[in-house]
Design a binder for these strands. Structure first.
Lengths: 337, 337
DNA sequence: CTGAAAGCGCTTACAG
DNA sequence: CTGAAAGCGCTTACAG
């Protein structure tokens, strides 16, 4: 079907030299290998004329390296991850790397599948957002000695690289902001998950409450990832009907939680911030257009992506150093609290 | 650095057979090739024990096929394209294909670079959102006889596949909706571009206006892609200060135009729909939270992605049929007009 | 300065 | 039923 592409050998035949010479000029080694000046010219000309393009697959097989990075996120359609993917792409291309993206949907089954697929495809390294139960697939990567850096969250105990938000302080500061604004019954809406980033966000909230003597007011709702809408609707309805402990402020621990919560708050006509103050997670255009623009925890998603690539490149270049990067968030103040 | 992976030959040596047999059982051809029953068992066992993983790069070199699709969008961080990418990913994985994504930023230079990179990497097919001036890079793909399907827009005159929105009717219907609602001075905000999807959207608007005897009221502002904010702010400011022809309704021709326009409308405090009616393009969570939820043209992005993959797979399987798919949009009615 | 040859890890006709 | 061998398109020591 495909037209047969011209190979090194075709060039060599045309010029009447061995493939070695063609390979040398292709790779700019005509100096070191002292290829004859006229030969170089002839080879260049032939490559041009025949529109030669090197076959990376062959080169990969030879080198045992593909110049490819595997990126596993939970969902590329999630703006947080698509934005990060873009930064990763840009940073990787700068160094001649290409990126293959896969979405795990927060399941270890899909993560496993992706890891296996990408490992078979000989990616040189991984950037992964580990899902729950991903200890195994990650240790498989590590066993194979393929460099990997985790982003957004990491698997505690796994000796490997990661670049994540300082989730504890992000959450602590957001909660403290609400407390300082005078709210007392501050609730947290989090995912039901033992993943570290979620636990840290919970912990930050709890510690802030305790620090201000509000341990009695600690109120956390855990949402099931697969039942986002139904679970969160229930939570918001209960708040709306005052069944629930007179919650006067709500902190959402992720962007998807924030959005789902806002939809329900909006449809129930709960007044923000008068009846309910809000702090969301991650920037989002929708936050800006909510009638009370939403105060939120801003993550340095660009840095997260770029830093992950830099660490990964380092590893692929043989560095043995394990890097743990904690990025600081910023609380963007608006009118929702 | 990487641990040497176990190869077919390692298995063969361990079991004491030739690589041919191992290859046969690996590919489930033990029946056709009548491999001895015990041998099959031994090979299977060895593969298991040694944790053998086939090397796709080697296989690719042999087959001349990589089971990889190259996807070139304008920006993977744009929600429209990231959502499409997700559908493409899912559909591709179903058939054992992996996808490599690149962002062109709407420039032909980056598109060229991406095409070259992906061609070198021997992708089996392309799905591309062609940028302005991309005639050349596309014809290069076509010359190389690599299957390609264009999405979102296409290059007229290029004999190739595409799946796009029926932009003319989308725009015609949206404009007609505004006219029927009684608006007279309806403006269109489009990108300054000769790309077909944009021209069709402009044409749909113009024809609708003419059909209702409003040719005199035709009013179009062309925004430069690289000066989105400044250009659009100027347009909205002029409307706000009534300098401009008493525009009472605005139709935005893309999602990025819609968002940029809404930000300015919001910050100037222009009342929607009383002072200015709005129709936007593409669904968007921000549309939902605007104080007057935005009426918009909804694209079937899932179908667009999946259909593109199906056509591409068909082509890669040798089909010579050229497919042109026009998808219908839907006007989602809300309160902004 | 240049060529012949081995090898990366597979697959597959061919011979027995 | 099984093995030896060629070949996919490159790179690179080695010999001359």
């Amino acid at each position: 079907m495909k037209k047969k592409r011209v190979s090194l050998k075709d060039i060599a035949d045309k010029v009447g030299v061995s493939t070695a010479l063609v390979s040398y000029v292709l790779n700019g080694q005509e100096k070191e290998k002292r290829v004859g000046a006229e030969v170089v010219i002839k080879i260049r000309k032939a490559m041009e004329e025949m529109n030669y393009k090197p076959n990376f697959i062959a080169r990969s097989l030879r080198y045992g390296t593909t110049q490819t990075i595997g990126l596993i996120v939970t969902d590329i359609a999630n703006p947080f991850f698509s934005t990060m993917a873009r930064h990763i792409e840009d940073e990787a291309y700068k160094s001649g790397y290409t990126v293959i993206i896969g979405s795990s949907d927060e399941t270890s089954a899909k993560s496993d599948l992706l890891v296996e697929t990408l490992l078979n495809r000989q990616v040189d390294g991984f950037i992964v957002v580990p899902a729950e139960g991903c200890e195994d697939c990650l240790s498989q990567i590590i066993e194979d000695k393929v460099p990997v850096v985790m982003v957004d969250r990491y698997v505690p105990g796994l000796v490997s690289n990661h670049v994540v938000l300082d989730n504890y302080s992000a959450s602590y500061n957001a909660t403290m902001h609400l407390i300082n604004k005078g709210y007392k019954n501050i609730g947290l809406v989090a995912y039901k998950s033992y993943l570290i980033h979620m636990r840290e966000r919970v912990r930050g909230y709890e510690e802030a409450m305790k620090a201000k003597g509000l341990e009695k007011q600690i109120w956390i709702k855990y949402i099931r990832f697969n039942h986002l809408k139904t679970d969160i609707n229930k939570v918001i309805e209960a708040i709306g009907s005052k069944e629930d402990n007179n919650i006067d402020a709500l902190f959402f621990a992720t962007n998807t939680l924030s959005m789902a919560g806002l939809y329900k708050i909006h449809s129930l006509g709960i007044k923000v911030p008068d009846e309910l103050a809000i702090i969301g997670f991650d920037g989002n255009e929708a936050f800006d257009f909510f009638y009370a623009p939403i105060t939120y925890v801003k993550q340095p998603v660009d840095e997260m992506g770029k830093e992950a690539v830099r660490i990964l490149l380092d590893q692929m270049n043989g560095s043995k150093k394990i890097s743990h990067v904690n990025l600081m968030s910023q609380l963007i103040l608006r009118n929702s609290c």
